[in-house]
């Protein structure tokens, strides 16, 4: 097991402008096999200039790893302007201690990311494998598609301890999302596979869904007027209304399932 500690230096975020650092080059699979000196020399984008990781982060390496699976990266400091944490990561583990900026876990294929705070927009965008755990809230477009794409998340599991903003799992094709709190409008928009569980409340869930399953355990505000009530079902001892939809996509395509209390 190897632990790579990266602590963002305070001067990076102390200016008038809070210019984001983009760390897609700092994933366990990309850092595996590198010495401390080599890690310090890995280039990261800070605004329109590329900088040495060692110039922006305090770096320390502890232990050794036999594969990327054994590499754990621990991010500390003010991470609210650190974008693309674990972007495209395939293996290993990242622990981010604090609120993280956009695209955390985007395109993630494997491994685990734990965010001990809130995650900004597009966490888990187009994710296809691995685990993403966000202790706090997730901002909009969690596990959504990239602009123009017809597929968002296709695999893996995402757990949000707090609330999620708009468009959770937009164009989701597979995998699982659990929101412990509430989800704002249009969770599961255009969903065509996979499963979303919202333990709190939701607004207009399931719009334009063509397949997949959404369960809302709290209350639904603004139920879509284009879903068909199919009957009731009991899940974990509670009674749910089962709807099919979205008929606004035509009957041929309306193969989504929405469970509402």
């Amino acid at each position: 097991m190897q632990t790579i500690k990266l602590k963002l230096k305070s001067e990076v975020t102390s200016g008038v402008a809070k210019i984001p650092v983009e760390v897609d080059s700092l994933t366990p699979d990309k850092l595996f096999g590198k010495t401390e000196a080599e890690i310090k020399a890995v280039q990261v984008w800070w605004g329109n200039k590329e900088e040495n990781t060692g110039d922006l982060f305090d770096v320390s390496v502890d232990g050794t790893a036999g594969s990327a699976d054994d590499v754990k990266i621990v991010l500390d400091g003010d991470l609210s302007r650190v974008k693309r944490i674990g972007d495209g990561m395939k293996a290993g583990e990242i622990e981010a201690n604090g609120d993280v900026d956009m695209h955390c876990g985007a395109m993630m294929a494997g491994g685990k990311i734990t965010v001990r705070g809130n995650a900004d927009c597009w966490a888990g965008r187009e994710m296809h494998g691995g685990d993403l755990v966000i202790d706090g809230d997730a901002a909009a477009n969690l596990c959504a598609m990239y602009r123009g794409e017809m597929t968002g998340m296709t695999g893996g599991k995402v757990t949000v301890g707090g609330n999620a903003d708009e468009c959770v799992g937009q164009y989701m094709g597979g995998g699982e999302i659990v929101i412990k709190g509430n989800a704002r409008m249009l969770a599961g928009l255009n969903m065509h596979g996979g499963k979303i569980v919202i333990e709190g409340d939701a607004v207009m869930p399931g719009a334009d869904m063509t397949s997949g399953e959404i369960t809302v355990k709290g209350t639904v505000q603004d139920m879509m007027p284009s879903f068909k009530l199919e009957g009731t079902e009991s899940i974990d001892g509670a009674e749910y209304k089962k709807y099919s939809g979205d008929l606004a996509m035509t009957a041929r395509k309306a193969k989504g399932t929405l469970y509402v209390k």
Binding site: L186, M204, A207, D222, M224, P225, S226, F227, K228, L229, D246, L247, A248, T250, A251
Partner: peptide
């Protein structure tokens, strides 16, 4: 509430006024 109204109109245009 535009979104809801638009979805309702779509369902009607596709022949599913019954669920609206």
């Amino acid at each position: 509430k535009d979104y809801l109204v638009l979805s309702a109109l779509r369902a009607i245009l596709y022949g599913h006024a019954d669920v609206v």
